[in-house]
């Protein structure tokens, strides 16, 4: 099959076969990343703009490396150096960038759904690198690739996601992707950080306690407490949060013995995870980052070659 989307904005928009294709392509891309000369000419002559309205180290660098390994020309625009600080609207910024004829715009924006708005304004491909509390599809895909590396499959796995579900676009993309692939999701977090109705997204169970969620889990996915995105009222303090929803070597024993520990980063050590777990044998956190480059290469490849069928 071939990939028929011009944009990748949310895993909600992709079906199971399309997700499988992206993961399979990423597996092939990994071979390039292990070479001495890590470059193929596939996207030579394509211009990719990384438009990041929110700070990012991992995702921006990963997209930039992915573009360069495919021989595309990548340009980075970050908030402090862009005209957004001078009051330019997103639509105007987009039209101005478009006048420079990019082939793909990779954008991160604080407003959920801003990519759909942008996709209606421009004729190049849009890839979502995170929008507000909506989705972060490249993270969802790299999480699925990392899990598939460990278990060889995604169906029938118990995946616990613990933390601030409401503000987490990673959680949403993971839920959208993993439920389509046949995993069961168990969520835990303070009631103030649990979006109502989240169980309607598919095979999702909301647990009352963290213990319930991670009991016999194959994967324990911890989320960062997003202090920049929430008011002060959602939890009393980080120490109390850590006691009820932090992962440590003791409660990790509740999960299956070969359970994977994952985190989208950046980690608040000692808040959502203890350092023993972050640096422990079951941690796949750096593997996630490694897979991120291959997944983003696969995304850039498929939106570039694809037809204009939306």
């Amino acid at each position: 099959m071939s990939f028929r989307h011009k944009h990748i904005i949310a895993l909600r928009d992709l079906n199971k076969e399309e997700i499988e294709l992206l993961i399979a392509t990423a597996e092939s891309m990994r071979e390039i990343n292990s070479r001495d000369i890590k470059k193929v000419p596939t996207l030579r002559g394509k211009t990719i703009i990384n438009l990041f309205y929110e700070s990012s180290t991992r995702t921006r660098t990963s997209f930039e490396i992915a573009a360069k390994r495919l021989s595309a020309d990548a340009v980075n625009i970050s908030p402090s150096t862009s005209s957004a600080t001078k009051g330019e609207t997103l639509a105007d910024t987009a039209l101005n960038l478009l006048a420079m004829k990019p082939d793909i715009i990779v954008m991160r924006h604080a407003v959920s759904g801003s990519h759909y708005f942008l996709a209606n304004k421009v004729n190049c491909s849009i890839i979502n690198a995170g929008d507000g509390a909506h989705e972060h599809p490249s993270q969802g895909l790299l999480d699925m690739l990392t899990i598939k590396d460990q278990f060889g499959r995604l169906d029938g796995l118990k995946v616990a996601i613990v933390g601030d579900i409401t503000h987490s676009r990673v959680a949403r993309s993971d839920i959208q992707g993993l439920t389509k692939m046949g995993s069961s999701i168990f969520l835990a977090g303070p009631p103030t950080m649990m979006p109502p109705g989240v169980e309607k997204l598919g095979n999702v169970t909301v647990c009352g306690t963290m213990k319930e969620a991670i009991q016999d889990a194959d994967v324990v996915m911890m989320l960062r407490i997003q202090q920049e995105r929430q008011g002060k009222t959602l939890m009393p303090n980080t120490r109390e949060y850590s006691r009820y929803f932090g992962l440590n070597p003791t409660n990790l024993k509740l999960a299956k013995p070969n359970a994977m520990v994952m985190h989208p980063g950046p980690i608040n050590r000692g808040v959502e995870m203890s350092s023993y777990v972050v640096d422990g044998d079951q941690s796949h956190i750096l593997k996630q980052v490694e897979n991120g480059v291959a997944v983003r290469m696969a995304m850039l490849y498929h939106v570039s070659g694809g037809g204009s069928v939306e």
Binding site: M1, S2, F3, L21, A24, T25, E27, S28, M29, E31, I32, V40, P41, T42, L70, A298, Y301, H302, S304, G305, G306, G307
Partner: peptide, 22 residues
Amino acid sequence: VDITMYRDDLAARGNLPVGKTD
């Protein structure tokens, strides 16, 4: 060797599945 990434007709062919070079 899988040559998908080295094709000169990628735009015309649409995207093809990428195989593994081993």
